[in-house]
Design a protein around this nucleic acid. Structure first.
Length: 425
DNA sequence: TCTGGGGTCCTAGGACCC
DNA sequence: TCTGGGGTCCTAGGACCC
């Protein structure tokens, strides 16, 4: 048997942990730039606020109903997540951390255990030590555990549901809408509904060859799992990422090349840092930019370009490559709303060092990167960054030097005590 | 009229997840 | 005016190999 445990309204619940006055209040958590709704408390859900709604669309509702809105605080959510996972591990060592707010727990080693009671204990322990309410679903496959979890959330006062007999499987499948099944998304839901498939149970009545033909082997796997035959294995240890990306929507569109270039350089440096964190090097760098896709008045432009690099995790190399790629796709006179950098073709750094294409720069850059990482990790933010990333957020004033009449830019004096001469415009 | 057979690798696009 | 960010896997088709 597997359990799927997840935090209810996770981000919203995290905010509540640090401000108990928010209990029973309608609260929402907003995305980057406060653009859309990414988490809601039950009270906010009851007001009809949907996941992914643009914030401006429900501005009036938020004001009228006194909904409290929070900008994201991923450092906080990540920390809460780790603590929650540690408690899960007290119940079984065999856990798969599936996302920031959920994990699969493998109980197949526990033959005589009272699962229902285990679920109740787990829920209480997390509530007591972390302050986050969780739901627990048990099933003979991961997909059924997911379904049990939904049922627990919807119907069970104690937050625990157990699907452990053929009879319960049938009952659970018949009460589960097809789009609530793990692995069935929007497109497949629309497709399946054309064939009168409304519930998970209906889906299991479809012939294998039909599913295989229209939904690939994944669809077939889902069917097996729904029937109680586990075929999606546990992943106890996270695999290193195969691609890493950093991308942002800009609060205000950027049009100048320098502005966009600074953003792209920052993203490249961020990718480089993430690469070093997991001990990988990249062989490919992709840069993409796009204008506002919601803007009906101006033509939409979106483009990307991929460059090969020499297996690196150096911010210097990756910034250089990213800027080169940007030059190829950048068009003057447009207003860019989003940009990003992706690194792929990743291999482990140790593997790289065994290979033939070693160069001098790698060792040199490596020391520098280690130093920068150490400084930034200690400070908890980017106190050291590259000039290419731009310094404008720190810029305090631009003045003429009284003696030389050269231009001087004063930066955040308290933290940096520094100024630079602008040698060009 | 008839134009081989068998394989691998890469990429783009489309589906999915949180 | 204002619309998130970060991933994975599968498949078909093309390029290329002998």
């Amino acid at each position: 048997m597997f359990a799927l445990v997840d935090g209810n309204n996770f981000y919203a619940s995290c905010e509540r942990v640090f401000n108990p006055a928010l209990r029973d209040k309608a609260i929402v958590v907003l995305s980057n730039n406060d653009g859309i709704i990414i988490a809601r408390s039950n009270e906010a859900k009851a007001l009809g606020i949907k996941m992914g709604t643009p914030t401006f669309e429900i501005k009036d509702l938020i004001a009228a109903k006194k909904v409290l809105a929070f900008s994201t605080n991923f450092a906080l959510y990540g920390d809460m997540s780790q603590r929650m996972m540690r408690i899960f591990r007290d119940f079984t060592p065999d856990i798969e951390v599936y996302s920031i707010d959920e994990a699969f727990l493998d109980f197949s080693g526990f033959k005589q255990i009272d699962l229902k009671q285990t679920g109740i204990d787990l829920r209480q322990k997390v509530l007591k030590y972390i302050g986050i309410p969780v739901s627990v679903g048990f099933g003979p496959s991961k997909t059924l555990a997911k379904i049990a979890n939904k049922i627990a959330k919807k119907y069970m006062k104690n937050g625990v549901a157990l699907i452990d007999t053929p009879k319960k499987i049938e009952k659970a499948l018949k009460m589960t809408p097809i789009d609530d099944v793990w692995g069935i998304g929007r497109q497949y839901t629309r497709f399946l509904q054309k064939y009168q498939v409304q519930t998970a149970w209906d889906f299991t009545r479809l012939p294998d060859h039909f599913i295989r033909k229209n939904m690939s082997v994944n669809g077939l796997r889902t069917k097996q799992e729904l029937l109680g035959i586990a075929c999606i294995p546990m992943a106890y240890h996270p695999e290193p990422r195969k691609a890493i990306r950093t991308a942002r929507t800009f609060a205000k569109s950027k049009s100048g090349y320098d502005e966009v270039s600074e953003a792209v350089s920052t993203f490249a440096a961020s990718c480089a840092r993430k690469l070093r964190e997991q001990g990988s090097v990249a062989n490919l760098v992709t840069v993409f930019i796009r204008t506002n896709k919601f803007d009906k008045k101006n033509p939409y432009y979106a483009n990307s370009f991929t460059l090969q690099v020499n297996a690196t995790s150096s911010s210097i190399d990756l910034i250089k490559a990213a800027k080169k790629a940007l030059q190829i796709i950048f068009k003057e006179g447009l207003f860019y709303k989003k940009a990003g950098v992706m690194v792929s073709g990743l291999i482990s750094e140790t593997h790289r060092q065994l290979s033939l294409f070693d160069d001098q720069n790698f060792a040199k850059h490596k020391q520098l990167m280690q130093t920068i990482d150490r400084l930034n990790n200690r400070a908890g933010l980017s106190v050291v960054k590259f000039a290419a990333e731009g310094a404008f957020p720190l810029l305090q004033a631009v003045k003429k030097h009284p003696a030389s009449s050269k231009t001087i830019c004063w930066y955040n004096a308290k933290q940096y005590q520094s100024y630079i001469y602008m040698t060009k415009k």
